[in-house]
Computed example of a mutant assay.
Amino acid sequence: MKRILGLSLALLCALSLCGCSELKQLRIETADQKLQIEKLRADNQACQEALKQAQALLAQKESEIKVKEVKVKQQSDAFREMQEAMKAELAGKQVAIQELEGKLTLTMVESILFDSGRAEVKPEGIATLTKVAEVLKTLSDKEVVVAGYTDNVPISGKLARTYPSNWELSTARATSVIKILLEAGVDPKILSVAGYAEFRPVADNASPEGRAQNRRMEIILTPKR
């Protein structure tokens, strides 16, 4: 009887120890599971934050694209309007229009604007610039540079008293053009003037034809910064 009782107690102890061991293992596994869940929650939160940032960046890029598309359309519209306004001058090759990398350049030969060695705009030139002004008045998102250029022939004689060099002549001519545009109603805040003398030629000054190409006026339109 005592032996049976001893065996029973031993069995109960063994079962108890076994149960405690299983309980301990379950607790360990439960703790591990909780850690995994917390890690997954943290990873999920990080993913959500990354997703929000990606969505915000996408929205910003889409907005920038829309702004660029509007600017491109405005530039194209300005190009077409300038072409329409300058049809006669373009046909007579007195004016050239170029659109490149967001910049619109209107180039006018000297003969349409000025007499040789003079900075006063001729009546024919005033009429042409008035057409240009009508287009410029519709543009509020552009900066306009009026730039004068000459050939490499030095100024001499009495003319040198007024214009000691081609720097003075090119700048005076550009300023005269600016004044015509202002009188026609162009916003002065979008205008600036530049004179480059003979130092930015577009043709060889060795020939009369090349020098004629270099004696020019440019009206350059660029997007506002």
Rank of each mutant, 00 (worst) to 15 (best):
I37Q: 11
C20R: 13
I97H: 12
E89K: 05
A42E: 06
C47W: 01
F79L: 13
A119Y: 05
K122M: 04
A42P: 04
V145T: 14
K66S: 13
N44Q: 07
T128Y: 04
V67W: 02
K87I: 13
V70F: 08
V72D: 11
L100P: 13
L100F: 15
M108S: 04
E134W: 03
K71E: 15
M108D: 05
L136C: 03
G148A: 01
I37A: 12
T105R: 07
L129M: 06
E124L: 02
I28S: 12
S111G: 06
K142T: 09
L15Y: 08
I37E: 09
R118F: 07
G19N: 15
S116Q: 13
K61N: 09
V109W: 15
E62Y: 09
L106Y: 05
I37D: 06
E120K: 12
E124H: 07
C20W: 11
A127I: 00
G117K: 02
L15T: 12
A91L: 04
L57R: 04
I37P: 09
S16V: 12
K52H: 10
L35T: 11
K73E: 15
E120H: 05
D141E: 11
E124Y: 03
T128D: 01
Q83W: 05
K103N: 08
G19Y: 13
R41F: 08
E99F: 15
D43Y: 01
R80E: 15
R118Y: 04
L51C: 11
T105A: 07
K93V: 02
A91M: 10
E120Q: 06
S111A: 04
Q48E: 05
E22P: 08
F79C: 02
A78K: 00
S21M: 06
E143C: 04
L23I: 01
Q53I: 05
Q83H: 15
E89N: 08
F79I: 08
Q75H: 13
A133K: 09
K103M: 12
F114I: 00
A46K: 05
S111T: 07
E110V: 02
K61Q: 11
A85H: 03
L17Q: 10
S16A: 13
A91D: 14
G117P: 05
A59R: 01
E143Q: 12
E124K: 11
E99M: 15
C20D: 11
V135C: 01
S116D: 14
V132W: 01
G148V: 02
S111Q: 04
E64L: 03
S63G: 07
Q36I: 01
Q74W: 10
A56Y: 03
K68S: 04
K34S: 11
G125P: 05
A133I: 00
